[in-house]
Amino acid sequence: MQDTIAVLIPCYNEAVTIGKVVDDFKRVLPEADIYVYDNNSSDGTASIARDRGAIVRHESRQGKGNVVRQMFRDIDADYYIMVDGDDTYPAESARDLLAPLMDGSADMTVGDRLSNGSYGEENDRAFHGFGNNLVRWLIKAIYGYGFDDVMTGYRAFTRSFVKTMPVLSTGFQIETEISIHAVDKGWRVVDVPIEYRDRPEGSESKLSTFGDGAKVLMAITSLCKDYRPFVFFGLFALVFFVLGLIVGLPVVYEFFQTSYVTKFPSALLAVGLVCCGMLSITAATILDTVAKAHRKQWELEVYRVMKDQSN
């Protein structure tokens, strides 16, 4: 039997571009099912997509993360392509994204806009490049994996990846969440360079540079706490211990010099800081054990999904 492919297009007010996006993917991937998930659009996006032959569904909870969560729940396929409906990503790269999945060398592929410089040439919005680089650096520092492009909205996945992906984000943090999940769970990731093009005239981005950027940073912090609790709470412990030493060393020095302690407030503060550090280390150890147990259960769930797929 031929492998099934689903193209997933989350949309909010993309009437200017959605028709062309659907047409392009139907031309490049005629065997694929094209799903457009309309997220309360008010400009006729859903009608245009339906007229072009897409399967249109509606998600009432506002936010891209909510849309992606429902798409992953609803759609059954062997391979998935997720792409924005703003016509900034070329449909011609779809087979390049699918190839590593189909030959078994990857579980997720990422449409990389940065390596060839096309994003920098086409996108002139201030701080977007800086934000992408900052998120890439944080993921590299925490998880040890360097993505070429973290915030891209053009990706492809295997069925086992999609059906074991716990989507928690509600908004534009979803790309960061997917990237961190892939690295934390040891999925095989391949970056595929693509040619990026900016939105056509009349099409407007819904991304708030600072508002959504702050949400992305908060998502990284929250996911670090959940996925890497020893690192997260260990940093707090280190800060408390260092501050305790800074405050307490003069007290200890005074005691050795005079056999007296006159700086009682400093002594109490130093003891309190060291105790907070010890509590942080204790919390880090306990939560790290819980996270490892959760990871074991997740691995078993992956085995079950892969077995069901093979049957």
Rank of each mutant, 00 (worst) to 15 (best):
E299N: 05
D184K: 09
D74L: 07
D76Q: 09
P100A: 09
P200G: 06
R295Y: 03
A99V: 10
G277N: 07
D78R: 04
C224T: 15
T17C: 01
L268K: 07
E201W: 10
G19A: 06
M306W: 10
C276A: 15
I139R: 00
Y12Q: 06
T209K: 03
K64W: 06
D107G: 08
D148T: 08
K307H: 15
W187E: 06
L269D: 05
P30G: 14
K185Q: 14
G248C: 03
L245W: 11
E92C: 03
R69C: 05
D226L: 11
T221Y: 11
I246G: 09
Y37E: 07
D184E: 14
F256I: 02
I180R: 00
G248W: 04
G211I: 12
H294I: 02
D96Y: 09
L168I: 01
H181R: 02
N123A: 15
Y89G: 03
F25R: 03
T88H: 06
F147Y: 15
V183R: 08
D76V: 09
A15M: 04
Y35D: 04
V247D: 00
K215R: 14
D226G: 07
G85D: 04
H294F: 09
V183K: 06
G211C: 10
Y253W: 13
D87G: 00
Y143F: 15
P30W: 15
W187Q: 00
